[in-house]
């Protein structure tokens, strides 16, 4: 390299290799994040050349306004769904990790929804859940007419319908994470336990469960952050109608439809703080090993 000393070379290569990536990181991660905090105390509308400081007005408005807290509470539906999804995926991961016939087929099948295009997958359910749609017809074919419901119209049901679509899409992801850890547990531990007289439940309780503690912690965290950031499924299937608006949808709507970037920033800051808080909590509870 132009006969430079190694020391000079090193300096050049460090600069050359880090400059652009770090530039991008700051432009698209740190600068916007810091801007969020600043914008959250202004009344900026997205166009005006000046941003007027308004103190904590946006935060106060946010706390008092049910249109904003409602979507935040919708997170709970998805979190409950995510917990059910975790339990189910653990069950299926344990099953496909045994000598069961057809285990690879089942694993593949349950995982496939995760790699599908988010919009396509959501629209599948938009069609599936229609009144007199495939789901209703399918239930009728099974003789379960009594279960038929207006899946997307009834505001008591619609959020659970969306959660169903979410579980459908993400179950395989949890399954593969669990499966990876299960595979890494040495088989001879199970064999030693079998010889001692441990049944399947004992084996699960005394060998499997202690070995997957960390991954469960990690998955709960992912589930929590995931439920806070739900966006595509309700955005595409219901467009937020019937009380299915999520917090991310409300934030984007506040900014881009109502042009209240100040309030939207405050909402984003709130979300950011919740996520960070939860991550710290998780680190404290489960340690740093994950």
């Amino acid at each position: 390299m132009f006969n430079l000393t190694l020391k000079q070379q090193q300096r050049i290569i460090i600069l050359a290799f880090l400059a652009i990536p770090l530039g991008l990181l700051f432009t698209f991660s740190y600068y916007p994040a810091s801007q969020l905090f600043y914008m959250s105390v202004t009344d900026w509308d997205g166009y005006a050349p000046v941003k007027n400081l308004v103190g904590l007005d946006n935060y106060q408005y946010m706390v008092e306004e049910p249109d904003i807290l409602g979507p935040l509470l919708n997170t709970l539906y998805y979190f409950v769904g995510a917990v059910i999804q975790l339990v189910l995926s653990l069950w299926f991961a344990v099953l496909v990790n045994t000598k069961l016939a057809g285990r690879n087929f089942f694993k593949t099948l349950l995982f496939i929804p995760f790699v599908l295009n988010a919009v396509a997958a959501s629209m599948v359910f938009q069609i599936f859940y229609q009144v007199d749609g495939a789901f209703d017809n399918f239930l009728a074919a099974l003789g379960l007419d009594a279960w038929i419901m207006p899946w997307l119209m009834d505001s008591d049901v619609v959020n659970w319908s969306l959660v169903g679509a979410s579980v459908w899409r993400y179950l395989g992801f949890n399954l593969i994470l669990f499966f990876g850890v299960l595979q890494s547990i040495p088989q001879d531990q199970y064999e030693a336990a079998k010889i001692e007289g441990a049944g399947e439940w004992d084996q699960f309780r005394y060998i499997t469960l202690p070995s997957i503690k960390l991954i469960i912690g990690l998955q709960v965290l992912l589930a929590f952050v995931g439920s806070l950031s739900v966006f595509e499924i309700p955005m595409i299937i219901t467009k937020g109608a019937n009380g299915t608006k999520t917090f991310v949808m409300a934030t984007l709507e506040t900014a881009f439809n109502f042009n209240d970037f100040g309030l939207a920033s405050a909402m984003a800051v709130l979300l950011l703080l919740i996520v960070v808080l939860f991550m710290i909590l998780q680190k404290v509870l489960f340690g740093d090993k994950a």
């Binding site: 040495p186 001879d188 531990q189 064999e191 030693a192 336990a193 079998k194 010889i195 001692e196 007289g197 441990a198 005394y206 060998i207 202690p210 070995s211």
Partner: peptide
């Protein structure tokens, strides 16, 4: 089943339970 055979086994990798 193994447990009904009146045997005990020592494994090559010892197969100790790491969290106990």
């Amino acid at each position: 089943d193994p447990k009904n055979r009146d045997i005990a086994m020592v494994f090559q990798s010892y197969a100790l339970f790491p969290h106990m």
